[in-house]
Simulated scan of single mutants.
Amino acid sequence: MKRILIFLSSFLSSFFIAFLLIHYAALPTLRAYPRLAQMIERFAYTEAVLIAFIGLALFLLIIQLTVGHLSTIYMYLVYSVYFFLLFVVLFTKAHRYQAISWDFLDFTRNGLRGWIEAVLNVIYFIPLGSLYGFRAKSAEFIFLALVTITGIETIQYVFYVGTFALSDILLNFLGCSIGYLLLKRVYPIFKE
């Protein structure tokens, strides 16, 4: 009975966190970009699907942490959807836009929206950092994360789909680092 209550509360908490993240942070920020707003409006169930994906992913992760077994199928499914969503957010938000920002703290000048976008930039890259954490040692992780993030920023600039911003590199690397450290902390549970 106690285990059922734990799973039920985990289920409700996961979907509540997903709702808060998507409804109050992710969608308002994404809608600020006209191209993404247009894509979101084309599909009437965007918010529901995103909440369902994030909520289910969190809930299934909690179950796996509880039982001490990490499913390979779960990893493939979650990372497949994650990479698709990351691609959409990173490379489809701007139409023929190119800029460079050398300011590490440019997000601080855009008020609340800038801070929310900064937090989302950190959150978006936590799963990538945890993926690197499965095999990479610390020095390898730092190299891989910085090359990946700098590559993404360069692609955005070269192909006119965004800004090459040092603040994004800093925030994305922070997210990767959080994911890497979380995995290094949690993964030994699964090995036992």
Rank of each mutant, 00 (worst) to 15 (best):
H69Q: 15
L70G: 00
S71V: 06
S71T: 12
T72W: 14
T72D: 06
T72N: 08
I73E: 09
I73K: 13
I73H: 12
Y74K: 14
M75H: 05
M75V: 14
M75W: 10
M75L: 15
Y76C: 01
Y76E: 02
L77G: 14
L77Y: 15
L77W: 08
L77C: 15
V78S: 09
V78P: 07
V78N: 08
Y79W: 07
Y79D: 03
S80E: 06
S80H: 00
V81M: 04
F83R: 07
F83M: 05
F84T: 04
L85H: 12
L85M: 14
L85R: 06
L86T: 06
L86P: 01
F87S: 07
F87Q: 00
F87E: 05
V88N: 15
V88E: 15
V88T: 13
V88Y: 00
V89H: 13
V89S: 14
L90W: 09
L90C: 11
F91Q: 13
F91L: 15
F91E: 10
F91Y: 13
T92Q: 13
K93N: 06
K93D: 03
A94F: 07
A94H: 11
H95Q: 10
H95P: 02
H95S: 07
R96E: 02
Y97R: 08
Y97K: 13
Q98D: 03
A99Q: 15
I100V: 14
I100G: 02
S101H: 03
S101D: 10
W102H: 11
W102Y: 05
D103T: 00
D103I: 01
L105R: 09
D106C: 02
F107M: 12
F107N: 10
